[in-house]
Design a protein around this nucleic acid. Structure first.
Lengths: 346, 346
DNA sequence: ACGACCTAGGAAACCGGTTGACTGAAGCTG
DNA sequence: CAGCTTCAGTCAACCGGTTTCCTAGGTCGT
């Protein structure tokens, strides 16, 4: 039997450095309640280094220090939006000495289970929740237990723990762009009702449409998927008057996938993009630039959302106060060829 | 100070059921080395139920039982392929009493760190590795330690721990389809060199092209991204002879993103799909059906790959033997409108 | 009637860290 | 030079499970 390359334990480091477990623990955790000679400190660090010591997270958690792990709950990983957020969260967590785990929360179906497995089982110190919606079972569990958590992207009103982007601004940016191209009748493909950013975008769209004096600003809801975009777009393009005139000349969608669906639906109706209908979507990802035509988008600061959420959560875990946060980076218009003046080529 | 709704602990359950910790532990873990009266067993389960008892994963891990957690390392979450795999893994893991965690391994950059944080810190019992490639730092770490693991999708030759799909078959399926439409000169957009499924697909493509007697079967490599598809496609379509004739009439890509890139590149050259060039991609996802034109694909059994990998890993963890596994489900052709006979409309 | 053998369950050690109370030695003070 | 601090660390309890021996009481065979 070959030598098992056993993990180094605290006591191994202690032995190697010629000190006690307690000293090693305190030195490595940089605790203030202990005075150590620099020389000793050095020996400890050196021993830990050569032995490649990693504290056992379970033991640490048991002893009352946390696990130094967070979990990010996203509603749908297939939506690459959340992947960008997750990356931001992961990186920032690492910088703060935490590990960020990723879990898909199939719109509440698995939420209880995830909650149990992650929080109750003591695997994580806190939750980053991107899957909130009214009536979500998780909200209940959270209020019963006292687990540190923040809501990101999908905020929960009155929680005082929301980390969001300036979603309203994205509607304004998109609408200003279309308006400046000459569009006066713009439709909006909104996300499902009840979901915070979806509602905010819709309200901002309607408000700003009013401010710009648009002649029409119909809204249709659909899932944040391609199919959701297809059905909402069909609804928007159905001739409203008997004359058979198209009610709108441009569409603004709440997600990238919806925009892809919208483009498909528009073409199915025999219309051209952007000559007949301009399309602009939210969230910029590589695929947008490779569509036909390349899609104009409003890029949201997703990565920053992830980092900001971790900052807020870690602050909470470490005893700080909590409060709503809005990521300062503004949505950015990414101009491509799916938008043009009504009747024009790009 | 409000009552902290503390987690129920083992001893709480024991007290409630009127037995000892040991008994509860054994009953809940269904251990054979103890005889209990059915009545006692019932009481224990009941108490655990009403107290909503969840074992503390850290404590359990410390005591020598595992963590009952696995980690899935994927090379790029932005590639939705891996999301489907992850779902399969997650579900199957749950059925087996495990929790599957998801981590992005930025092509080796973070692999060591992930390995340390997950394995060395004792957070997981085993690894599902989908990010292998020759020279990957993880391979070293794995051979040094004795952590249970399997490689999925991207196999590692000689490891005896590969869980794969019939990737060669997917090339045959795609090529047969194009051949039956009348194509005799087909190009292949392969993945990066050195990556197992990429190489296998390419070899199978070349072999079957030979079997079918194609007049041309050029191959160009590119990343599994849209941009990778663009550049490889440009290479394939560059006129080879002085005559300026296009060398091929169809393109088969190794990933869906590459297919999207290929379509963009084809259009940029002023060519039509499928009249001038047919396109067929690997992996079927919702977006494929909403492209312009809707993309014909070869659907791979990704979900099953995830479940099979978990089966294999858990078997290893629980002391079983290991061995290579190939998911039995065959690749399936999903016919859409990006393929047609040379010169024809779909 | 008495030991052998089950049956049902309990006591306690142990896993690997953390933490607050404690201590021996050196330095300072009066 | 005795007493008080400060310094530099040590001791041991503890976290919440699991597991390995035990044991008390009842059953069975002879």
């Amino acid at each position: 039997m070959p030598e098992q390359p056993v993990r180094a334990r605290l006591v191994d480091v202690a032995r190697a450095a010629g000190v006690s477990k307690a000293t090693v623990s305190k030195v490595l955790n940089d605790r203030q309640d202990l005075s150590v000679r620099p020389e000793t400190r050095r020996r400890v660090h050196e021993a830990a280094e050569t032995l490649e010591y990693r504290p056992h997270s379970g033991a640490r958690a048991l002893a009352g220090a946390g696990t130094h792990a967070l979990a990010l709950l996203v509603p749908a990983l297939a939506n690459p939006t959340y992947v960008t957020i997750a990356r931001g969260a992961y990186q920032r967590a690492r910088e703060l000495g935490y590990l960020s785990l990723l879990a898909e929360d199939f719109d509440g179906h698995e939420a209880d289970e995830s909650f149990n497995e992650l929080v109750q089982a003591g695997r994580v110190d806190g939750l980053l929740i991107a899957s909130a919606r009214p009536g979500h079972p998780l909200l209940d569990a959270l209020s019963r237990s006292r687990v540190p958590h923040v809501f990101l992207n999908r905020s929960v009103e009155g929680s005082g723990r929301n980390v969001t982007m300036d979603v309203a601004r994205s509607s304004v940016t998109a609408l200003d762009h279309l308006h400046s191209l000459g569009h006066r009748a713009v439709g909006h493909v909104a996300g499902p009702p009840g979901i915070a950013p979806s509602e905010v975008r819709k309200q901002a769209f309607l408000r700003h449409a009013g401010e710009l004096g648009l002649s029409a600003a119909p809204v249709a809801s659909g899932d944040f998927t391609e199919d959701g975009g297809v059905s909402a777009t069909r609804e928007l393009l159905r001739p409203a008057d008997g004359a058979g005139r198209r009610p709108i000349t441009a569409i603004y969608t709440s997600s990238l996938a919806q925009a892809i669906g919208a483009m498909a639906a528009i073409r199915d109706l025999g219309l051209r993009i952007p000559e007949d209908i301009s399309v602009i979507g939210n969230d910029d990802l590589p695929v947008a630039g490779h569509l036909h035509p390349p899609l104009t988008t409003v890029a949201m600061p997703l990565y920053e959302l992830g980092t900001a959420a971790v900052d807020a959560l870690v602050a909470t875990i470490e005893g700080g106060p909590s409060g709503d946060v809005v990521v300062p980076t503004e949505p950015r218009l990414v101009l491509r060829r799916s938008t043009a003046g009504p009747g024009e080529s790009p």
